[in-house]
Design a binder for these strands. Structure first.
Length: 260
DNA sequence: AGGTATGTTAATTG
DNA sequence: GCAATTAACATACC
């Protein structure tokens, strides 16, 4: 379920388990996950090398190798990382599996193959080519207002990675729920106060989600997330949760306190 | 069996 | 040029 908080947790997991270990074996079990690099090329760039540090931007995770080249992961909807002992507990759908000389392995899992694994010379250049906007957590309030732009439905703008990188469907709904804004509200109708509240909630939601390990079961009872997907009472007012489609995605919200 | 799913992108239409 | 909509990608779940 990788949105920004999930990918931040993946980054910390990779940092804690896999840095500074020599890669002994590289397996690519499905080449469709690779973007712009062949299986042979990826293997030769990784084998015998070490991962030295990592960097997250939006939903992308970049890993610097000891060659100063970068390995990057984009997880799509069903991506995950798994660290395990060789010949034991090997997860399903590991599309890239690195085995270290220590006898432990790091796998990039992708059930639906909607993610990407690639090599890059420089993360900044790669993000530029993709047209990715600034990372949601690095924005100050001025940068946020600039990134919002002038037209469109607020939820679509929050989800647009070219404007702000990192927010996905679930956390976009959560931010709007806490800010009391209807997902289809036109951004040009937002008051300065509403923009301030939106910015403050964006920070609060993403930071809190990271503190709670991006585990949906651990989010506050006052949030939308524990009730998302059910037409039950709103956890913050007398309303009843409901949903509609915005930009092809399901938007859950409370029609009573989320104002157009 | 058909609809849905936390992501992105291309094609199309307004 | 922008924004909205839809299909496509591949697979599991209800």
């Amino acid at each position: 379920m990788p949105e920004l908080p999930d990918v931040e947790i993946y980054k910390r997991y990779l940092d804690a388990t896999s840095l500074h270990q020599k890669i002994r074996k590289v397996e690519v079990t499905n080449e469709k996950i690779l973007e712009g690099v062949s299986r042979e090329r990826l293997i030769s760039e990784l084998e015998g090398h070490k991962m030295m540090s990592s960097l997250r931007h939006g939903k992308y995770l970049f890993v610097r190798l000891d060659s100063d080249r970068w390995l990057l992961f984009h997880f799509g909807m069903t991506g995950d990382l798994s660290f395990f002992a060789e010949n034991k507990d090997r997860p399903e759908y590991g599309r890239l599996v690195l085995t270290f000389t220590s006898g432990y392995c790091l796998a990039c899992i992708s059930r639906r193959l909607l993610g990407k694994i690639a090599l890059a010379d420089d993360p900044h250049d790669y993000m530029g080519e993709k047209g990715l906007g600034p990372d949601a957590l690095s924005l100050d309030s001025k940068g946020f207002e600039k990134a919002l732009g002038r037209r469109g439905m607020i939820k679509s703008l929050l989800l647009n990675q070219k404007r702000i990188a990192g927010i996905g469907n679930v956390y976009a709904d959560e931010i709007l729920f806490q800010a009391g804004l209807h997902p289809q509200k036109e951004v040009q109708l937002l008051t300065d106060d509403e923009k301030k509240v939106l910015y403050r909630q964006l920070k609060y939601i993403l930071e809190t989600a990271i503190e709670r390990k991006a585990d949906p079961g651990k989010m506050p009872e006052t949030w939308l997330l524990p009730y998302r997907g059910r037409e039950v009472k709103c956890p913050s007012c007398k309303g009843t949760l409901t949903h509609l489609k915005v930009g092809g995605r399901t938007a859950w919200y409370c029609p009573l306190h989320q104002k157009m």
